[in-house]
């Protein structure tokens, strides 16, 4: 157990609290954001906006001051390729069916609601199946 493990643990807890406070753990709330043809609830956009308002300056600071830890951080690609396009499409199609993206699904797991258990099990199967078929990490 190192300090970076404790940091990761604490970040997981705060991330979960953020999702709970924003009610993003309620799939009906998420589906209401996607329901533009019905009773649209734009709350989810405010969650993303609040998070970006904090993370964007943190990223600028990080880029200016280099990496404080000893690990080499590889900056994620900025290129738009077929994988990121089809990945977004498949993820969106699934998201609209269940109202769960990976974060809220994991945070909701301790409720042991049958719908959450089925969704998370299928999500993990999808992740493992993709890895086996594609051979990518």
């Amino acid at each position: 157990m190192t300090r970076s493990h404790l940091v990761a643990f604490g970040c997981g807890i705060v991330f979960a609290i953020g999702l709970v406070v924003a009610h993003m753990t309620d799939p009906h709330k998420v589906l209401a954001f996607l329901d533009i043809a019905g009773d649209w609830d734009p709350s989810l956009a405010f969650v993303m906006g609040g998070a970006i308002a904090v993370y964007a300056p943190a990223w600028r600071y990080y880029r200016r001051n280099g990496t404080p830890a000893d690990t080499v951080f590889t900056i994620p690609s900025r290129r738009i390729d077929a994988r990121v396009v089809f990945g977004g499409i498949l993820f969106g199609l699934g998201w609209g069916l269940v109202g769960f993206c990976p974060g809220p699904a994991i945070v909701s797991l301790p409720t042991l609601a049958p719908s959450v258990l089925v969704t998370v099990a299928a999500m993990l199967v999808g992740m493992i199946a993709y890895r086996l078929v594609s051979g990518r990490g």
Binding site: L93, G94, V98, M123, G126, R131
Partner: peptide
Amino acid sequence: LALGGLLVGVGTRLGN
């Protein structure tokens, strides 16, 4: 639920 979860899993890994 199963199809939705599966698509979320595959799609998020494919799209990184």
